[in-house]
Design a protein around this nucleic acid. Sequence first.
DNA 1: GGCTGGCACTCGGTAGACTGGAGTGCTAAC
DNA 2: GTTAGCACTCCAGTCTACCGAGTGCCAGCC
Lengths: 363, 363
Amino acid sequence: MSRAHTHQGAPRPHDELDGRRAAILDAVVAEYIETAQPVGSTTVSKAAAVGVSPATVRAEMVALEREGYLTQPHTSAGRIPTDRGYRFFVDHLAEPGILGPSQRTQVSRFFDHLHGEMEDVLERTSSLLAELTSHAAVVVGPPHATAAILSVHAVGLGPRVVLVVAVLDDGAVEKVTLELDEDVSDATVAAATAQLRERLEGRALNQVDAVEPKGSDPHVTRLVGRALEGVVAMGARREPEEVFIGGSSRLAASFDAVETVRSVLAILEQQLVVVDLLNDVLARGLSVAIGEEHGYEPLASCAVIVAPISLEGAPGGVVGILGPTRMNYPSAIAAAEVVSSRLSHRIDAARHGEHDPDEARRG
Amino acid sequence: MSRAHTHQGAPRPHDELDGRRAAILDAVVAEYIETAQPVGSTTVSKAAAVGVSPATVRAEMVALEREGYLTQPHTSAGRIPTDRGYRFFVDHLAEPGILGPSQRTQVSRFFDHLHGEMEDVLERTSSLLAELTSHAAVVVGPPHATAAILSVHAVGLGPRVVLVVAVLDDGAVEKVTLELDEDVSDATVAAATAQLRERLEGRALNQVDAVEPKGSDPHVTRLVGRALEGVVAMGARREPEEVFIGGSSRLAASFDAVETVRSVLAILEQQLVVVDLLNDVLARGLSVAIGEEHGYEPLASCAVIVAPISLEGAPGGVVGILGPTRMNYPSAIAAAEVVSSRLSHRIDAARHGEHDPDEARRG
DNA sequence: GGCTGGCACTCGGTAGACTGGAGTGCTAAC
DNA sequence: GTTAGCACTCCAGTCTACCGAGTGCCAGCC
């Protein structure tokens, strides 16, 4: 709704469609989503909500085409929706989708039986979403910035290599490898661990400051300094390893041009790009980006559906679906929302140390 | 060589080909790999090593076809190699491939600049291999069984949830989440950590036994028991998260049937299947499995190249390439071998705590 | 005896002609 | 404003002809 006037190009100042045209557009989109064939006036006129003759439908279709909602692959073919047509459909026509009963139980079972640590949870959630929608699914894990450090530990892997491991209260384990310029002894590492513990444990990751510590032993001081830098970086980074993509084989089923499949897969491989894309869409307040609405050229034939993961009300991470523009938006949106909401509760619960998964369902 | 008599079906008892036929087969394979077009007798007769007229070539091709090395898509088309033809090519004809100079430097640069922890290293190695070969690449991380535990730590995530984190001497961090039947206090967790440390630190993962510990506090005892079970499981498991697949978009470039792409991608999504496949091939002493040689039906049009990661001489993990049977075997094999060897040294070095990446290049 | 040039033949792929059908735009009548 | 009727367009499928690549075979040659 906030986007109502961001798209210009409609000849008429009011870009709402009157009831009949809307009904026709609705019928075209619905039919095309189902059959993947251009839709003709006869088919549309048979739709319950339309109730006028094919001839009238044709006249209206000409108008809809002029206004950019429909297009013709060629003269004397039926019409197919444009990106704009899909957009109107999603914003004004589609009734909110709901999951089918079997899908509901699938989701419930999944979250009831879900256990284990963060990475695993996110990975499997992406598969779930892919399975629910038959499209590729993406899950971007929440940043750890607000998670508190439960435990921190420096471990010498070699004379000049030290691994710093932090366990966070959401069940994630973050690690940085430090490569040093000087050898460090076990004692130094132990001393550094002690200092790190004191300074970090119980703090949120984004409240760590890298102020150079003072201390007697300069070796220890330097090591602690480097470790703090590393921990600060943990809080800031949104690492590729936090992105989980499931069901990419579904892409091949959605498109019939192998080149399209290739280019979309190539995008998915650049995980940082995917994260940017999803965040862009989210930042624009959309839950759906259709065709060229997102600026990513190679994905022009794709629609992206996003749903934020919200942790205690604050956004953290995203759940997304990537499919052809010709997709079942209502049910895909419903799936994304249900999954993101269940996942949000799940992570919230983990951060508060609750155990019983049913906790998440309250409120 | 050990496989020489495992394939029956050749009319002749000796399945070696005389020099001329071999040269013809060689020419067909080489040409077909390059052009993807059926190869005719004229083209073959022009090849340097052949030196007979097209008519003679045709006569020999008939023989090669009868013996199962070549096939014709249809009468009056050229010949293309069968799986068996590729096999003979790989075993007897292809001269060992070497990487081009630019690839060599690419590999060297990569390993010189490689730093950080295991997961990251494996992930990026899979991308490197994909880039080198233009095919999909798989890296299966070494099992942690023989890695020593540097540090172990139990952390309470909630009243009934405890995370056990172990840092291994190869730079990997393993974790298990325990869901308990009773609440545990911080003190219990601390006591358990102390016990675990004493029992585990310095030991190899596969030398941990889950003998029920004795101790005063039954809560602590139970927790330690569960934790030990978890740690033992760490050593045994080969988790999906240890599989890294790079360059899957290249698959779409290799095949022109979108359905083939889909089914191959679907296989790749089942990471455990991929691991099994690679291990199967390795177990049969092969470095290449062509077409139907591996039993995996949906991959009948693929060739798999494997190279073991060897740690101190013992096998641990695999590096693999998945491409169309029509692939450049010599260079792909060379790439897999170079990468697996560099990676092996790398991991060996990490386990011994060496720092300087040049260390790996010695010997 | 083995190799080769010549030759008739096969077959896939392309181009053109034709057709049926789906669907359109227009118009005249209701 | 709506509709039936109609002429028109264009795709998709079928059929044909034809070209060319490549084959298999055979007779002649070294």
